[in-house]
Simulated assay, not measured.
Amino acid sequence: MTRKKLGQLEAEVLAVLAGAQGHLSTGELLDRLDGAPAYTTVNTVLFRLLDKKMVERSQRGRAFVYRLVVDESELVAERMFDHLRVASDPSSVLNQFVHGLSTSEEKALRALLNRREE
């Protein structure tokens, strides 16, 4: 199954759900999102994510609540690969990426690359 490209708000909703301990309602999501999107807009995003089978929905009282059912790291890595594939100079993109890493992120990346070489 090929996934559609994620919009910015979809990515933000996924990130909030990934960091949540359990299910969140639309209202709880709104409280955690930047930019104060409309309630109906967030609901539309949730319906799209539900249709893509990225979230599951259940009922808590009279409200629907949502939970992430895919691995966030896979989704983010997929988006990174998509950007590299369309870049005219992927090495330059990787160079910019590496130079933007914090010290701890760089150490984590080095450890992963060293493990891969072994």
Rank of each mutant, 00 (worst) to 15 (best):
Leu84Ala: 05
Thr2Met: 08
Glu118Arg: 15
Asp51Leu: 12
Asp89Met: 01
Glu56Tyr: 00
Ala77Leu: 14
Arg79Ile: 02
Ser91Met: 11
Tyr39Trp: 12
Met54Arg: 01
Glu56Gln: 06
Arg60Ser: 12
Leu50Phe: 06
Val76Lys: 10
Pro90Val: 09
Gly100Cys: 11
Ala36Ile: 14
Leu17Asp: 06
Ala111Thr: 02
Ser25Arg: 11
Lys5Asn: 07
Lys4Glu: 13
Asp71Phe: 02
Ala108Met: 09
Ala38Pro: 08
Lys52Trp: 06
Glu56Cys: 02
Asn95Lys: 12
Leu6Lys: 00
Asp31Ser: 14
Arg3Cys: 04
Leu112Ala: 13
Gln96Ile: 06
Leu94Ile: 08
Glu106Leu: 15
Arg85Pro: 05
Arg67Pro: 01
His23Phe: 14
Thr44Trp: 10
Lys52Leu: 04
Glu10Ile: 06
Ser25Glu: 09
Val16Ser: 04
Thr2Arg: 02
Gly61Ile: 03
Arg115His: 12
Leu68Lys: 02
Ala15Ser: 15
Gly7Phe: 03
Gln59Tyr: 07
Val70Tyr: 08
Leu17Lys: 04
Arg85Ile: 02
Val69Leu: 05
Phe97Lys: 05
Asp89Ile: 04
Asp89Cys: 03
Arg62Cys: 08
Ala11Thr: 10
Ser91Gly: 02
Glu72His: 02
Ala87Arg: 01
His83Gly: 03
Gly61Phe: 05
Lys107His: 08
Gly19Phe: 01
Leu49Pro: 05
Asn114Ser: 15
Ser73Leu: 03
Leu9Ala: 11
Asp51Tyr: 04
Asp82Glu: 13
Gln96Thr: 02
Lys5Leu: 04
Leu33Tyr: 06
Glu28Asn: 07
Ala77Asp: 07
Val42Phe: 05
Arg79Thr: 01
